[in-house]
Amino acid sequence: MPDFIPDLPVILAFALAAFVIAITPGPDMALQLSRAINYGRAHGLASMAGAMSGIVVHTVLVAFGISVLIVAAPPLFLALKIAGAVYLLWLAFQAVTQGGGLKLTEAAKRAPTVWQSYLTGVGINLLNPKVVLFFMTFLPQFVSAGDPAASSKLFFLGAEFIVVSIPSGVLTVLAAGWLVDAFRRTRWVERTLNYSFAAIFTAFAATILTAQARH
Score class of each variant (00 low, 15 high):
Arg35Asn: 12
Val71Met: 08
Phe19Trp: 15
Val10Pro: 10
Ala51Tyr: 07
Tyr87Asp: 00
Val60Gln: 01
Ala150Glu: 04
Leu88Glu: 12
Leu61Thr: 03
Phe156Glu: 07
Ala95Gln: 04
Ala150Phe: 02
Phe183Ile: 10
Val164Trp: 01
Tyr39Pro: 05
Ala108Trp: 09
Trp90His: 12
Thr172Asp: 02
Leu133Thr: 02
Pro25Ala: 01
Trp90Val: 09
Gly123Cys: 13
Ala205Thr: 06
Ile5Cys: 09
Ser67Ile: 13
Val143Cys: 04
Tyr118His: 15
Gly84Glu: 07
Phe4Ser: 11
Phe64Glu: 05
Phe4Pro: 09
Leu171Cys: 13
Gly146Ala: 02
Phe134His: 12
Trp178Cys: 14
Ala17Pro: 01
Ala149Ser: 15
Ala206Tyr: 03
Gly40Tyr: 11
Ala92Gly: 10
Leu179Trp: 06
Arg187Val: 11
Gly65Ile: 10
Ala176Cys: 02
Lys153Ala: 08
Ala150Gln: 04
Phe142Gly: 00
Ser34Tyr: 03
Arg214Met: 12
Thr97Phe: 14
Ala175Ile: 08
Gly123Pro: 08
Phe93Arg: 13
Leu69Ile: 13
Pro25Asn: 01
Met1Leu: 10
Ala13Ser: 14
Phe14Asp: 09
Val71Gln: 06
Gly99Tyr: 09
Phe138Trp: 14
Ser34Gln: 07
Asp28His: 09
Phe197Cys: 09
Thr24Ala: 04
Ile166Phe: 11
Val173Ile: 07
Leu193His: 12
Asn38Trp: 02
Gly123Lys: 12
Ile162His: 12
Leu209Glu: 00
Tyr39Cys: 15
Val131Trp: 02
Phe93Glu: 06
Ser67Asn: 15
Thr192Cys: 11
Leu45Asn: 10
Val173Cys: 08
Asp181Gln: 15
Ala18Cys: 00
Asp181Phe: 14
Ser53Glu: 09
Thr113Ser: 10
Gln32Thr: 11
His43Ala: 09
Trp90Asn: 11
His58Val: 06
Arg187Asn: 13
Asn38His: 10
Ser152Leu: 02
Arg35Trp: 14
Leu209Met: 08
Ala36Gln: 00
Val68Ala: 09
Met29Pro: 12
Met1Gly: 15
Thr137Phe: 13
Ser67Glu: 10
Ser152Arg: 04
Glu106Met: 12
Gly177Phe: 12
Val71Glu: 03
Pro74Gly: 00
Ala72His: 07
Val68Lys: 12
Ala83His: 05
Thr105Tyr: 08
Pro27Ser: 11
Met52Trp: 07
Phe201Asn: 05
Thr210Gly: 06
Ala18Met: 01
Phe156Trp: 13
Ile23Asn: 05
Phe142Pro: 00
Phe183Arg: 06
Ala85Gly: 01
Ala211Tyr: 04
Lys153Trp: 13
Ala73His: 05
Ala95Arg: 02
Gly123His: 14
Ala198Glu: 05
Leu209Lys: 02
Tyr39Gln: 14
Val71Ile: 07
Val163Lys: 03
Ala72Thr: 14
Val143Pro: 03
Leu8Asn: 15
